[in-house]
Amino acid sequence: MNALIPIAGLWKWIIGRPCAGTAVSVIRLEKRGLEHRSLRLGGKLQCVKGTLWITVAGEGRDVILQEGAIYATDRSIRVLIEALEDSVVGLRPD
């Protein structure tokens, strides 16, 4: 089961950016759980717990994020997030 919980100011990577209007979410994914999301310019995705497989639409490579790793984008993208084990994702789509 996936859970989406809006929060603000959870990770250090938020510091340095204004939080007004910035939606920060935590997504809990069970092993093999999937989540589709859009990220805009400056959007960040953090593997808070577990291991994630990130597929970016239109790119020929995938990214594996281990606990603590961050994926940041320099353009608007659509991602598919798959949990390789029970995981927690931090998401700031900007």
Rank of each mutant, 00 (worst) to 15 (best):
I27K: 02
P6H: 06
V24C: 14
D94N: 13
A3S: 14
G50R: 01
I7V: 15
V24F: 08
A23H: 08
L10A: 14
Q46M: 12
I7W: 04
G60A: 09
A57R: 14
I7R: 06
L10G: 02
V48W: 07
K49Y: 12
L29S: 03
G9M: 06
L52T: 04
K49V: 12
T55P: 00
D62S: 15
A72E: 15
V24E: 15
M1I: 07
L29K: 05
L52Q: 05
D62A: 10
S38G: 13
I15Q: 15
R78E: 09
I14T: 12
P6C: 04
D86Y: 07
L10S: 08
P6V: 03
H36I: 08
S76L: 03
W53T: 00
L45G: 01
I70D: 04
W11Y: 13
A83T: 06
A72T: 11
E30D: 14
A57F: 11
T73L: 05
E67K: 08
L10Q: 12
V56M: 02
T73P: 01
P93E: 11
M1C: 08
V26Q: 12
I14S: 09
V89I: 08
A72L: 06
R75G: 05
A72M: 08
T55I: 05
I14N: 12
E59D: 11
T55D: 07
E35H: 15
S76N: 13
L52E: 01
G9S: 14
A69Y: 03
I27Q: 01
L84F: 08
E85S: 14
T55C: 01
A3R: 09
G60W: 00
I81E: 01
A20R: 12
P93Y: 06
W11T: 06
T51K: 15
G43W: 00
Y71I: 02
W13E: 11
G33T: 02
R17F: 09
I14Q: 13
G33H: 01
K49D: 14
I70A: 02
V79N: 00
L91M: 10
V79G: 00
G42H: 05
L29Q: 05
L91S: 05
M1Y: 10
D94G: 06
L91F: 09
G50M: 02
A72Q: 15
G68P: 12
V24L: 09
N2V: 08
K49H: 13
T73G: 07
G33D: 01
I54A: 03
S25M: 10
N2R: 12
R78Y: 05
G58Y: 07
I27V: 14
S25A: 13
L91E: 03
Q46A: 08
K12Y: 11
I15F: 07
S76F: 02
D74A: 08
K49P: 04
K31G: 04
S76M: 05
G90E: 02
T73N: 06
V88T: 13
E67Q: 15
V48K: 03
I77F: 01
D86P: 11
L80M: 10
V89D: 00
R40L: 11
A69N: 10
K31D: 03
D74I: 05
I70K: 01
I7A: 06
L65E: 00
I15D: 15
A20E: 15
T55N: 03
A57E: 12
S38P: 06
I70H: 01
L65S: 04
V26W: 02
L10N: 07
R40I: 05
L34C: 07
A57G: 03
H36L: 11
G21Q: 09
P18T: 13
L29C: 04
K49F: 10
I15K: 15
